[in-house]
Simulated scan of single mutants.
Amino acid sequence: MTAIVVARAVATNATGQSTLDLCLRSALSEPWVDDLVIVDQANAPAVSSALRALQLDRRDVRVVVADARMSAAAAANLGVAQARGRWLLFLDSDVVLQRGAVQRMATSANGAAAPWIVGGRLTDLEGREKRAARGGALNTFSALAVAMGLPGVKRARGKRKSSKPSAAAPVASVSGAFMLIGREDFSALGGFDEAYVSDAADLDLCKRAADAGGSVLLQAEASGVQFERQRKGRRQAQGLARFAVKSAKTPLERMFALFAGPAIGALIGLRDAIGGRRGGRR
Rank of each mutant, 00 (worst) to 15 (best):
M1H: 13
A3E: 04
I4N: 06
I4V: 13
V5N: 00
R8K: 15
A14R: 15
A14P: 01
T15D: 15
G16S: 10
L20T: 00
L20Y: 04
L28K: 08
S29F: 07
E30S: 14
W32N: 10
L36E: 12
V39H: 02
Q41W: 04
A44Q: 15
P45M: 12
P45E: 10
A53M: 10
A53F: 03
L54T: 05
Q55V: 13
L56M: 14
A66T: 00
A68Y: 04
A68N: 05
R69V: 15
M70N: 08
S71E: 05
A72G: 10
A73H: 06
A73Q: 11
A76V: 13
W87K: 06
F90V: 14
D92V: 00
V96M: 05
Q98G: 14
R99L: 02
R99M: 01
R99Q: 14
G100H: 07
A101L: 04
M105W: 10
T107C: 09
G111V: 12
W116F: 09
R121V: 09
L122M: 11
T123K: 10
L125W: 08
R128F: 00
R131D: 01
R131L: 12
A132L: 00
A133R: 04
G136L: 11
G136P: 03
L138N: 12
L144H: 02
L144M: 12
L144F: 04
M148V: 01
G152V: 11
V153A: 14
R155D: 13
R155K: 11
A156P: 01
R157P: 01
G158I: 08
G158R: 13
K159T: 13
P165V: 14
A167G: 11
A169C: 05
S173W: 08
V174D: 03
F178G: 01
G182P: 07
R183L: 01
F186M: 08
A188N: 08
L189A: 12
G191W: 04
E194N: 13
E194D: 13
E194V: 15
Y196N: 04
D204G: 12
L205P: 02
R208L: 09
R208H: 08
A212Y: 07
G213H: 11
S215L: 02
S215Q: 10
L218M: 13
Q219L: 00
E221P: 00
E221A: 14
Q230G: 08
R234N: 09
A237C: 12
Q238W: 07
G239T: 00
R242V: 05
S247N: 08
A248Q: 03
A248C: 09
P251C: 04
L252S: 12
R254G: 03
L258Q: 11
P262R: 07
A263W: 09
I264K: 09
A266G: 11
G269S: 15
R271P: 00
D272W: 02
A273N: 03
I274G: 04
R278G: 09
R278I: 03
R278M: 05
G280F: 01
R282Y: 02
